[in-house]
Simulated scan of single mutants.
Amino acid sequence: MSDTSATPDDVRHVADLARVDLDEDEADEFAAQFADILDYFDALDEVPEVDHEADLVNVMRPDEERECLSHEDALRNAEATEDGYFKGPNVS
């Protein structure tokens, strides 16, 4: 269990700040859930620290320049074009 616990009063305070209405049963339930969440954070304290930075390797391929589609080929399957550009629906 966490050394830091959340009381139903803490839950009600946070709920008031968030403008959320809670009844007593919900406040008790959330207090228990908050305590579980705080336990998870305590578990993170047990993770050992890393003394050095990881050796990063670029796994991406280098950019390769190659021929692209012609203007006509790019517009060939367009549903609608206008003045050499793609034409989409009007937005209102």
Rank of each mutant, 00 (worst) to 15 (best):
M1E: 10
D3N: 07
D3L: 09
D3W: 06
T4C: 03
T4D: 03
T4S: 02
S5N: 11
A6T: 05
A6S: 13
T7P: 06
P8S: 08
P8Y: 10
D9Q: 05
D9G: 03
D10T: 05
D10E: 09
D10R: 02
V11M: 08
V11G: 07
V11S: 09
H13Q: 12
A15F: 04
A15C: 05
L17P: 03
A18Y: 06
R19E: 11
V20F: 05
V20N: 04
V20T: 07
D21L: 01
L22A: 04
D23R: 05
E26L: 09
E26K: 08
E26D: 12
A27P: 01
D28I: 02
D28E: 11
D28Q: 09
E29R: 11
A31S: 07
A32I: 01
Q33D: 08
F34Q: 00
F34C: 02
F34R: 00
A35S: 08
A35H: 03
D36C: 00
D36A: 06
I37L: 12
I37H: 05
L38C: 01
L38N: 03
D39K: 02
D39P: 00
D39Y: 03
Y40F: 13
A43M: 07
L44K: 04
D45H: 10
D45G: 07
E46M: 00
E46N: 00
V47G: 01
E49M: 01
E49P: 01
V50L: 09
V50W: 04
D51Y: 04
D51G: 04
H52Y: 01
E53Y: 11
E53C: 02
A54R: 07
A54S: 01
D55Y: 02
V57Y: 10
V57T: 14
V57E: 12
N58C: 10
N58V: 05
V59C: 06
V59L: 14
M60T: 13
R61P: 02
D63G: 09
D63T: 13
D63H: 14
E64R: 14
R66D: 14
C68P: 08
H71L: 14
H71S: 15
A74I: 03
A74S: 11
R76N: 09
R76S: 13
R76I: 08
R76Q: 14
N77F: 15
A78Q: 12
A78D: 08
A80S: 06
A80C: 04
A80M: 12
E82D: 15
G84P: 08
Y85R: 13
K87F: 14
G88F: 15
G88Y: 15
P89N: 06
P89L: 09
P89H: 03
N90C: 13
N90D: 15
V91G: 05
